[in-house]
Nucleic acid binder design. Structure first.
Lengths: 374, 374
DNA sequence: CAAGTATGCTAAAAGGTTTTATCTAAAATT
DNA sequence: AATTTTAGATAAAACCTTTTAGCATACTTG
């Protein structure tokens, strides 16, 4: 909201607009333009009403009684504020109070359904508490995340909700050292003493794998991406553990990291399934992999669940729509978001009280679907 | 980033930490805590280097030469800044300059794939230009949107990107009057002279309907929601026009607005399709409706594309994955976001130059898929 | 009646920038 | 020699709040 530097302050009670008209006309001819409405500040209110800034501020902040401002003055000020529609400048408050009431939400990719859903829940909760959310996507790229963290520090954001990228430990550590509230999610950093909210990756992977085994699979595949982040490691070890406990064969297939220009995961998976004809059960470590894998299996005419049984981590609307329906591990999105914000807000409340991290691991739900064979 | 009020400023060049140790120990015993690192301000730099704040500011902002600051001083300051890792406070800058470098993205629902994708593209573009994005979801609710706009005004956001809700005209009008840059998308407001970026709803609906007719459909259904917003009206009129030009029957089915608690669209659609057995072609006005409709058709055992041919507005990853693949109108998400930000940034540049709205209507792409009958 | 307390309000500092106007000393021009 | 220009820097205002400390005046209290 820009306004010209030449600014005529008008007392709305004592001014005759007609006096001004010829001057405005002249100014307009000179190429100036006239701002009818300058944003009114606390100072303007004080001046207009002949009281001090302090008084107005106290009244605005509900401290009138406490500060022994007379009812008469209080009413006068309140009335005027309503009249001119005054709203305090959030920026000035931020500067004064050192709080911006902004939380940053650093997702891996905000357009991904999982993160977008969480974004929605978080937004809801944050706005209720007077916080706004700035989002950004790290692409799981360390450099980018580091850069983002640094620019957000400058913005005096009040807290960080982050899906940590690889190698980000030091930046997170610094953040905590500087007393920024930080909550990680989806994955965590064993080397950093930081709050996080994650799900039972290992347990659910174990359960899902067992499910495949119970369904009679003998040759299991675990399809994942090249990553040593906790969520992937845990899913992997859940799978491995379940496999060890029974006498089935297991294959682990790690997709290379993909740039969009390279050959896609679909082709890679096609090759993989072609080369392992014996596979009769697949565990996809993410739903994205599952979507690609399902296409590959379809191309190869392996029917689900007859020839191959499939389970995916991270449920999706489509797994229920797809024919056949696909069994998947559902993460408790709403609860997760709820806990994320709860943790964040409690950290924000307890600033100065020292840092005691909260670590939450939430249970998932295995939605078994292949029995519902339509 | 809080710090205690008792703050000992240390000149990092001339202080011996050992001198301080016993005092810190004592303070700690008293319950104080010690901040190793206070955020350094421009003032600290000036004091430490024995120059004025102005000088430092000029150097930081690349105006050293212009303001005839000697190279000697410039180098000294720059070196020191690098040493202490000084970064200007964005809040203070915002206050001073009246710009927050924040754009707000008001979507109908940020967790919806369409909006989430746009959010991602917009983010990319914004960050490149030094802007951050705050998002929020209006739920297409007028009250909520109005409230959000008002709180964002206080935040001195620099611009608004909005999917307008019904009845929001006045708020948008006020926003423009107050010289906030505003760009609408997905739909627009005929009564407000405001920039927007939308797609060719009518043209594409016409084309898609024609496609159904060409494929031999004789009894067409148009499935939409109760809404008089432009995007829906245009899709509807595109359908109607195509129908009029040929001799097919047409049914328009408008779903009631749903609260989550009510009976779902699935049941409603089931009833609809049951009652109109002659329908052999369906145009869904949104992909959400299509997903629900596909399930209903599946339940009724109407095979696609044999018994019924289907087209949906707004393409989706899943339409390509579904069996059979579903024909859909693909909106140019990336281009749309690109134009959205381009418009916004140009408005931000041209502030003060008066308001000349930009109106863009982008073409879609009809992805015909039922021929690919796998 | 002196001392203390309650009442009603305000001045001024602080928070961190940017920018305008100004200042001094030296150099260049009359 | 007197005047103007330039180089090199700076003081202070402005952006808009919140909050601490304090100032009169009027009322209690011992």
């Amino acid at each position: 909201m820009p306004y010209t530097k030449i600014c005529i302050n008008l007392n709305p009670f004592s001014f005759d607009f007609n006096l001004l008209k010829p001057h405005i006309a002249l100014l307009s001819e000179w190429g100036f333009y006239f701002m009818a409405k300058k944003r009114v500040s606390i100072k303007d209110i004080a001046k207009a009403l002949g009281v001090s800034i302090t008084t107005v501020s106290f009244i605005i902040n509900g401290k009138a009684r406490e500060q022994r401002i007379s009812d008469e003055v209080t009413q006068k000020v309140k009335k005027y504020i309503k009249e001119v529609g005054y709203k305090p400048s959030h920026i000035a408050q931020s500067l004064r109070l050192g709080k911006s009431k902004i939380i940053v939400f650093m997702a891996e990719d905000i357009s991904n359904q999982f993160f977008a859903s969480i974004a929605r829940f978080i937004e809801e909760r944050a706005y209720k508490s007077g916080y706004k959310i700035i989002y950004c996507s790290t692409d799981n790229n360390f450099e980018k995340a580091k850069e983002l963290i640094s620019t957000f520090k400058r913005r005096n954001v009040d807290g960080f909700i982050i899906t940590p990228t690889p190698n980000i430990e030091e930046s997170i550590h610094d953040l905590i050292e500087e007393e920024f509230p930080v909550v990680l999610f989806d994955r965590w950093l064993p080397e950093v003493n930081c709050s996080y909210v994650i799900v039972e990756n290992k347990e659910s992977a174990y359960e899902a794998t067992q499910h495949l085994i119970e369904e009679g699979c003998k040759n299991l595949a675990f399809v994942t991406v090249e990553s040593d982040q906790t969520q992937m490691m845990d899913r992997s070890s859940g799978f491995t553990e379940a496999v060890k406990e029974s006498d089935v064969n297991a294959f682990e297939f790690r997709l290379k990291f993909h740039n969009l220009s390279e050959v896609g995961p679909y082709e890679e998976l096609l090759d993989f399934f072609k080369s392992k004809k014996e596979i009769d059960g697949v565990f996809f470590a993410t739903n994205y992999l599952a979507f690609e894998g399902l296409q590959a299996l379809d191309t190869l005419q392996r029917s689900i669940p007859h020839d191959v049984k499939v389970v995916s981590f991270d449920d999706h609307y489509f797994f229920n729509l797809y024919k056949p329906k696909i069994t998947a591990i559902e993460q408790p999105l709403e609860l997760l978001s709820e806990k994320l914000m709860e943790t964040m807000l409690s950290h924000l409340d307890e600033l100065n009280l020292g840092y005691s991290p909260v670590r939450l691991v939430l249970p998932n739900k295995l939605n078994k679907r292949e029995s519902t064979e339509n």
